[in-house]
């Protein structure tokens, strides 16, 4: 099934190659369960492109983050997107970082991507992975110490288990069949609600314990397609000095507060921040709360309609109750 989509993807790219500057997609990484982003610029490289549930990265950041892949006048850049990634692209268009006619969007419906750490956790000892194959909702891993078979659902990323937009919301061409979401839209914030039923002390304790693992590598920030300050983030400025270099909980929390509050009403819940965290901190959970708030207060969902203005970048003089 994945090889068919990969084949179709390569054919599609072959066809559009003459009209585009480059194609941003995925290729095999250092083993079968690790995929990495690739920018295809010549036809000979098209065969590198792949699609399977290990294609975890959201590629939309490469369209805007320096040194970005920017097309020359009158040309386009093609980008492969999953459902969640397509919302990031829309959000970038919304905020004026991208022009719709500069990009060619190859949408791929996605039934969930795999968390490599969850796979490794299943192997008794870390060892060399020879082959990995997904068939009928199960992952088969052949490694140096034996064979492991794991139901796919158990190794999906948390973001995928709560996905309600598995199909690209914007695209020029769609490859593969439409898939149904993992959960109903009403259930989207049930984890947030459950957490809020805990006492304030418990919540504070949870964050104190969880965030104390943070090493402030800023991967969550840099992987976020909507963190567009890049090298000018206030977390790293000396003047004004918001965050110190001290590895204290206060500074860590402040950094995550900066990240989250700057994304309030903008975050598309692609979950990249959480996926890239080397210390497995559920960073996206903070943003989920803010999205729950903006949905409730302003009935707004980021990255769906490119004509809307994010709620915190505008106002409504007639607002009551606020």
């Amino acid at each position: 099934m994945w090889s068919e989509i990969t084949k179709k993807l390569q054919e599609t790219v072959q066809n559009i190659m003459p009209q585009v500057e480059a194609v941003i997609g995925w290729e095999r990484g250092f083993n079968e369960i690790r995929i990495k982003p690739v920018v295809i610029k010549k036809e000979g490289d098209i065969s590198k492109l792949v699609w399977n549930p290990f294609c975890v990265q959201n590629l939309s950041g490469y369209l805007v983050k320096s040194p970005a892949v920017i097309p020359r006048e009158g040309r386009r850049v093609a980008i492969c997107v999953k459902g969640c990634d397509s919302r990031s692209v829309t959000a970038l268009i919304q905020e004026g970082f991208l022009k719709r006619d500069q990009i060619f969007i190859i949408g791929i419906p996605c039934s969930g991507t795999v968390d490599w750490r969850k796979v490794m956790k299943r192997l008794e000892r870390s060892s060399v992975i020879h082959r990995a194959e997904i068939k009928d909702g199960r992952l088969m891993v052949e490694h140096a110490e034996g064979v492991e078979e794991i139901p796919l659902r158990e190794i999906l990323l948390r973001r995928c288990l709560r996905c309600v937009y598995p199909n690209p919301t914007v695209s020029d061409v769609v490859i593969g069949e439409t898939v149904s979401p993992h959960i109903e839209k009403e259930d989207l914030y049930k984890d947030v609600e459950a957490f809020e039923r805990k006492s304030l002390d418990e919540r504070r304790k949870f964050w104190a314990e969880t965030l104390s693992r943070c090493i402030r590598c800023y991967a969550c920030r840099n992987a976020c397609p909507l963190c567009i300050c890049q090298d000018w983030c206030i977390a790293e400025r000396r003047d004004p000095k918001w965050v110190t270099q001290k590895p204290t909980l206060k500074d860590i929390l402040l950094f995550h507060g900066i990240h989250a509050l700057h994304l309030a009403g903008r975050c598309t819940e692609c979950g990249e921040c959480e996926r890239v965290c080397p210390m497995e901190i559920p960073v996206m959970f903070i943003k989920e709360k803010l999205n729950e708030t903006t949905l409730r207060l302003f009935s707004y969902e980021a990255g769906i309609d490119s004509n809307l203005v994010p709620p915190l970048l505008t106002f409504n003089p007639h607002e009551t109750g606020i």
Partner: peptide, 20 residues
């Protein structure tokens, strides 16, 4: 008018981290 939206969001956000 911009500010009041931000404040509402913040007020709703603080308890999530355990701050009244």
């Amino acid at each position: 008018l911009y500010a009041r939206r931000r404040f509402e969001v913040l007020k709703d956000f603080l308890p999530f981290l355990g701050i009244e």
